[in-house]
Design a binder for these strands. Structure first.
Lengths: 349, 349
DNA sequence: AGGCTTATTGCAAGCGCTTTCAAAACGGCT
DNA sequence: AGCCGTTTTGAAAGCGCTTGCAATAAGCCT
């Protein structure tokens, strides 16, 4: 309140353009909004004047006055993992080609902040919101919807939320991964789960169980260890699996981070991958292609998810009354080098 | 213009709060801006009313009316690399603790867009701008500065730009990396450069050369291959180095991506790291800890850079007349497993 | 109690732009 | 020339909030 920081003289407003071109602000506004009933010569003169003055629209004022924002918000937990990276890339590209800008907000798990962010955004800075935060409180989403604010959830846990959602075939992915290992000859297959509060985690686990069942392999509870999608737990869980009397010849990790932790644990134990133990991840984050051996994983179409989410959101923005849609994209097994047939010794065990 | 998309009835404004609390909008505004001369009881009543109504400030209006934005913009090339990731994490954290929000804009190398972004942002959505794009046109930055818009460049190439900059000791890093290898016993040390248009690239190379010189090792032009900071070039450059009659026993890569490519090439050639060839990178992106063997690298204090840049920017926001500062952070050698003494055979060669 | 200083609050004028609503200009027809 | 349906414009009312200025209410002193 005290400090000045006042507007710099610099600001060229629509008024300046108007007077320079010799028309009213309304007409200038129309030109910049592509209104059709403006004489061609008028349009030109205005554009010319704007050019000379170096005019740039003030988004805030425009939005305040009821104009439409050309930005879309993306709410993400943080920039620190490949998962968000992949999605946001897809989002960014799709947005760019639709003439929208991306505004990414990070929550860093500070629960309180999420609300503030959403408030802020919903306040009109953006035309719609994409949410990749794993556990958005249902109430937030509902508040947004009540305001008729366009929202699309990405890979969201809570299926009770009535909103457009883009997700993937987690169950199928779990099934495919497991079956891949079975086809390779594995019979003792460990599974490190994700954060069980999330739908994706339970689905992937269910897929794993079903695959075992379909191939008449008895399920062994000792082979299923609960994780939390984080690397550290992947490491710990794997150590636990390795101490088993009859240790698994292969492990399905609920996501790549977990798999990375698992690989580390296996290495630390002096075992080789895939020689002694095969390992398969989930997500296909960039790191998966970099570790040694390269990680075989169930690819989540991250980038595609982002793109589809954008398309969906744009539809909602166009038509506020559009019914929520649920789009499920399919996962795909990406074979690399971390899986092989179990070695004879292990199998005989 | 045609479509409706009008404001939903929902919007609780400062007027609603004012009338509910029985005070004027000015007072309500003061309460929300932490103005001191407001009676405690008044403040309480207003806060209470706001709470009951679920009031949230409209950022746009606030900013339009001259209020200060509590967001800082970050202009980055894209979310797809660990470098930006590291910096943006630091930025995000520092911002969060200063009560600011982060608005990340990606340019994806669409040169044209950068301008539009900057325009947009400069237009008042944010209080200041952080730029990590490698080659921002000087004119953009100058335009921004002319408007007295706070800007801080991160690790920027063009030193002729008169603006606050945060960068790192690239020269020192190149020197340290090379010296590390020399101390290990290497004498034939290859160097794969970065994009030579960038200052960081030339500095790192210069550091390498000086280290060789200081240790009386003749410089061999054949050992220096030009790269572009990208993985693919790292791979290609390394293949080239490996075909040398007297191939190097160690390679300094201008950044981690390049190093990653180099490692791949070495593997593909059937050589081991660090057995046959030692390799050292630059940056310490997250992937460096994940590859096998883990990459020894010159750590760029990415996160710290982000944090420092934020502090600097905040200073500029507080005091628009602050002179540009140039802060250089030091790099640090992070030893992991990709470097070892050259094996006897290679040395004798 | 009267006067003066200081703390609180309200008024009202914008911030830059969009968007009705209505007036002004055209063009074409009779 | 006179009338009518369009096409182009301009005037003016906000959008929700900040703030300078002025008015009012408290406090304190003599």
């Amino acid at each position: 309140m005290q400090r000045d920081n006042s507007k710099k003289q610099q600001n060229v407003t629509i008024y300046d353009v108007a007077s320079r071109a010799g028309f009213s602000v309304s007409t200038v506004s129309r030109v910049f909004n592509g209104y059709e009933f403006v004489r061609e010569s008028t349009r030109e003169r205005i554009l010319e004047a704007a050019d000379e003055l170096g005019y740039v629209a003030n988004l805030q004022a425009r939005s305040l006055a009821g104009g439409r924002s050309r930005y879309v918000g993306l709410l993400a937990p943080g920039l620190d993992n490949g998962y968000v990276g992949g999605i946001s890339q897809g989002v960014d590209r799709a947005l760019a080609s639709a003439g929208y800008g991306l505004m990414l907000f990070t929550t860093h798990h500070h629960r309180g902040q999420e609300l503030a962010y959403i408030d802020t955004i919903a306040n009109g800075l953006t035309a719609g919101l994409l949410i990749t935060v794993p556990l958005v409180p249902k109430s937030y989403v509902e508040a947004l919807q009540q305001q008729q604010f366009p929202v699309v959830l990405i890979d969201q846990a809570d299926t009770s939320i009535q909103s457009s959602v883009v997700d993937t075939t987690n169950w199928q992915g779990g099934y495919t991964a497991t079956e891949h290992l079975i086809n390779l000859g594995h019979r003792r297959i460990g599974f490190i789960t994700g954060l069980m509060a999330l739908r994706s985690a339970t689905d992937r686990l269910a897929g794993y169980k079903m695959a075992l069942k379909d191939h008449d392999i008895a399920q062994d509870e000792a082979l299923i260890v609960e994780g939390d999608y984080m690397r550290e737990m992947g490491y710990a869980a794997t150590r636990q699996l390795l101490t088993l009397e009859r240790r698994p010849t292969a492990i399905v990790a609920a996501n790549d981070f977990t798999a990375l932790g698992a690989m580390e644990a296996i290495h630390d134990d002096g075992l080789t991958i895939p020689g002694d133990i095969s390992i398969i991840g989930f997500d296909d984050i960039p790191e998966a292609r970099v570790v040694h051996p390269k990680l075989t994983t169930v690819r989540l179409p991250l980038e595609q998810m982002g793109r589809v989410a954008v398309e969906l959101l744009l539809e909602h923005i166009e038509d506020p009354d559009l019914q929520p849609k649920h789009i499920t994209l399919s996962t795909q097994l990406t074979e690399r080098q971390s899986c092989a047939a179990p070695n004879a010794l292990s199998v005989s065990t």
